[in-house]
Amino acid sequence: MRPFDYVRAGDGRQAVGLHEPGTMYLAGGTNLVDLMRLGVAEPDRLVDVGRLPYDRIEPVPDGGVRIGATVRNSDLGAHPDIRRRYPMLARAVLSGASGQVRNMATVGGNLLQRTRCGYFQDVSKPCNKRAPGTGCPAIPGEHHNLAIVGHSDSCVATHPSDMAVALTALDARVHVTGTGGDRVVPMPGLHRLPGTDPQRDTVLEPGELITTVELPAPPVGRSTYRKVRERASFAFALVSIAALLDIDSDGIVRECRLALGGVAHVPWRAARAEDALIGSVAGEEAYAAAADAELALARPLPRNAYKVALARNLITSTLRELAP
């Protein structure tokens, strides 16, 4: 057995202080423990941050909400204010994993979970994300559920989170603390595209710890989260969408938020689609044009071109459903 230290931090400052090279933070463990069993993650030390006092969901004066990093996914998805005011977030969280996993998984951990690309999870195989410079066997190999946008010759992995897709659409602000002090990282912006260094999933520096996710007041409009997968429950998205639409009395799109899951190394904010839609006349034509504007960026691989069609259909049909 590969030995490692385990320490439980009493507060965020202590957690950061305990972090050294080779340290990983542990919260719900629903991803990290799997990765340790597989030999993908081999930390020398685990600092357990699962019981840090970031376990509250609180309103903030500007009408937004502050969600602690150790709030369990099940508590977030069931929270009355979240369900009422941020339905796309509640739906996204509840569409992830299973009830048992959601009971363990935390908000911070959900944002920082690793890709489920089969090559990344198999230490017998090359993978630039796990072992930089070894290559990406998914590109010539099995990639039917991997990225169609934003990928590189080094990596075609997708980010697996549902929750992060909704947070990306909601302009979440991620509060982190580290040896360099506290800072705020906006979403989109926390996760990064693979480029030539896909081993880095996010912009966080070593030792930085997520403490809180803050949401501004919910934008006006009807919203939802819709996830397409290969079984009805407990599967990662082929493509998912967090969407919000607000149409004024003249039929003009006043506000629109669109983010896609399952298509990229990051939860993908569909900014081009949003730009195309806002100010245009709501309707099939505008929805299709918006989808096409975003998916013009798509560079599908030989066996995942279906995702382009799926994303297009999902954008247009979700917008259609949201229109009053």
């Binding site: 299973s98 079984r231 009805a232 429950s233 407990f234 599967a235």
Partner: peptide
């Protein structure tokens, strides 16, 4: 390897 979940 996806086996049916109860929801299926």
């Amino acid at each position: 390897y996806h086996l049916p979940a109860c929801a299926d």
